[in-house]
Design a protein around this nucleic acid. Structure first.
Lengths: 117, 117
DNA sequence: CGTACCTGTCAGAAAAGACTGACAGGCGCG
DNA sequence: CGCGCCTGTCAGTCTTTTCTGACAGGTACG
């Protein structure tokens, strides 16, 4: 199969990824999931964190496309949400940043103020 | 000369880099400096940002080793601080994150509260 | 000597993010 | 049917960032 060209992520995407990974807890979460996939409650116990909090972090990671959550039914009928790490790959160089910065269409920038005049 | 082995940044370092880059303004700052080196005041005007604020962002970027500031004396004797982007390169994969997470010795974790008891 | 440009820092307000406890529901087992 | 374990969410707090205005210092020019 042919080579994959160097990825050029959008500013939006890259921003999400970087801010998601730029956090000790989230880094540990990813690390824990690399070892083995797990469901929310168990993972919370493993890394000593409240469920609501972990839920928020996982949500952030998933929004960045770094992990994937799947709701699976166990044999006994219990619904558990398993999380796996997504096979991501990003290169961080000044040029990549420059290109990404040019494509920041973000709404995070201006939270809808008025710039009339 | 020999090949450079895949870099394995410490959790501490990677954390700084990611949180530094995970910000729209800082991304644009890097992008602007890729185009051409510049000094603080001019850069502030260029991207429309207050000097104190820009100063803070540059400080953060420099702390992460992404840009380098040099205080230079202009011909007319004025002191101006020029900033250049540092030639950085980071690979972001689940494995890299996992390895980095293991080396988080951070003080960012607990901001030195009291856990005496 | 007042003006213009450069540098930096500090206190305090505003916004964003992280965190907690309580509550909702669902299913199976003794 | 109460208990245990699973899922999720919401309101409220607390901490961290982000941002602004004002200040202080320096050199050069008219």
């Amino acid at each position: 199969m042919p080579e994959v060209p160097p990825p050029a992520p959008t500013g939006d995407t890259l921003l999400k990824v970087l801010s998601a990974l730029g956090n000790p807890h989230r880094m540990r979460i990813v690390a824990a999931l690399v070892e083995r996939r797990n469901y929310v409650s168990a993972l919370a116990r493993e890394i000593g964190m409240g469920r609501p909090l972990l839920h928020m972090h996982l949500q952030r990671l998933e929004a960045a496309g770094l992990v994937v959550g799947t709701l699976e039914l166990a044999e006994d009928g219990k619904a558990m949400k398993y999380f796996d790490v997504a096979p991501f790959f990003y290169e961080l160089t000044p040029q990549v940043i420059a290109r990404a910065a040019a494509t920041i269409t973000e709404s995070a920038d201006r939270t809808e103020k008025e710039d009339a005049k």
